[in-house]
């Protein structure tokens, strides 16, 4: 090798630059990721930059005034209507993600620990509702919760209530119920995966050291499945804050969420900058809420030891 280079110094030095460039790991790495990188820039980064830019501008009927202003943020943060909508959205998404995780955990636990040879079948069955359109599933909840719906007739048939309740549909509870059902599978899967990774010998070791089934669950299985719980919580929390279809269909007047207001700004109200400012505000607050939830769960898990 050394000898070959010494024999032809001219060729060696002429080729060196290009070869070194092509062979460098950094260049190869960049080359390999460039398609996905471009995709991310065009479809993720660019739209966000456009939205952020708009949020600092002003709409004048059909034209946009591109002088920097914080007026949109002042409106987004101080107008009671937007503040209320934002709070409601956060409340709904927090409740939905909490409920979803609480309902999903036992299901994931059952499949992982007692699914035996049929784990695959169980997971498959859980995904079946997702074969139909989301709209159809929301409509199904309308049928269940409506004035002449399944739930009302059932309760009346049982003699629990005398006349149909209007409290079931067209409010934030209806949104919470519908979203909790819709996101169940997305919470079950990450929790299932993290439970699968819990070494069963660890549970045996806890038993051997004196723990009954409940204590070994609380001290070993649950702490070790926390990453799955956090993943499930975030997977549900982040998209539900911005959900737009569900409140529109089952939320009624009391169930309107921030995304509906944003949609109005980009549509009928034709105030893109305000819509953009509302979007950015929501993104920032969701991020903060997600970080806070992760922090609280982690500390709770640490305390439990």
């Amino acid at each position: 090798m050394t000898a070959a280079v010494a024999d032809s110094p001219g060729v060696g030095s002429r080729r060196t630059r290009r070869d070194v460039l092509l062979q460098s790991e950094a260049v190869q790495g960049l080359g390999l990721i460039s398609p996905t990188f471009l995709y991310a820039v065009v479809f993720l980064l660019a739209p966000i930059i456009v939205v952020i830019a708009h949020s600092f501008w002003t709409q004048h009927y059909l034209t946009i005034d591109r002088t920097f202003t914080l007026e949109n943020y002042r409106i987004a943060l101080t107008e009671p209507i937007y503040r209320d909508l934002l709070w409601r959205s956060l409340y709904i998404s927090l409740t939905v993600s909490f409920l979803t995780v609480v309902f999903a955990y036992p299901i994931a636990y059952f499949i992982s620990f007692h699914g035996g040879r049929h784990k695959g079948l169980w997971l498959f069955l859980i995904t079946i509702p997702f074969w139909t359109s989301y709209l159809l599933r929301v409509m199904a909840w309308k049928v269940i919760l409506g004035y002449n719906g399944v739930l009302n007739s059932g309760l009346m048939g049982l003699g629990i209530i005398d006349e149909p309740s209007t409290a079931l549909l067209y409010n934030s509870s209806a949104v919470i119920i519908t979203l909790t059902h819709a996101w169940a599978a997305f919470a079950i899967l990450p929790i299932f995966v993290s439970l699968e990774k819990v070494d069963r010998t660890l549970v045996e070791a806890a038993t051997d050291l004196g723990d009954g089934p409940l204590r070994s669950f609380l001290r070993v299985t649950l702490p070790l499945s926390i990453p799955g719980v956090i993943a499930a919580l975030l997977i549900v929390m982040i998209p539900t804050v911005g959900d737009y279809v569900t409140p529109k269909l089952v939320g009624g007047k009391d169930g309107v969420m921030i995304a509906n207001a944003i949609q109005v700004q980009f549509g009928k109200a034709a105030n893109w900058p305000l819509g953009a400012a509302l979007s950015v505000t929501t993104m920032v607050i969701v991020t903060l809420m997600a970080l806070a939830s992760v922090f609280i769960i982690r500390s709770a898990a640490r305390m439990a030891r």
């Binding site: 070494d199 045996e204 030891r305």
Partner: peptide, 25 residues
């Protein structure tokens, strides 16, 4: 008598050290 109430303790083949706890814990 279940395993958690027997006067025996076990050293497992895989050791089964709790990964979320330190040595002392």
């Amino acid at each position: 008598i279940p395993a958690n109430r027997r006067p025996t303790n076990m050293v497992f083949q895989s050791y089964a050290i709790f990964p979320h706890l330190n040595v002392e814990q």
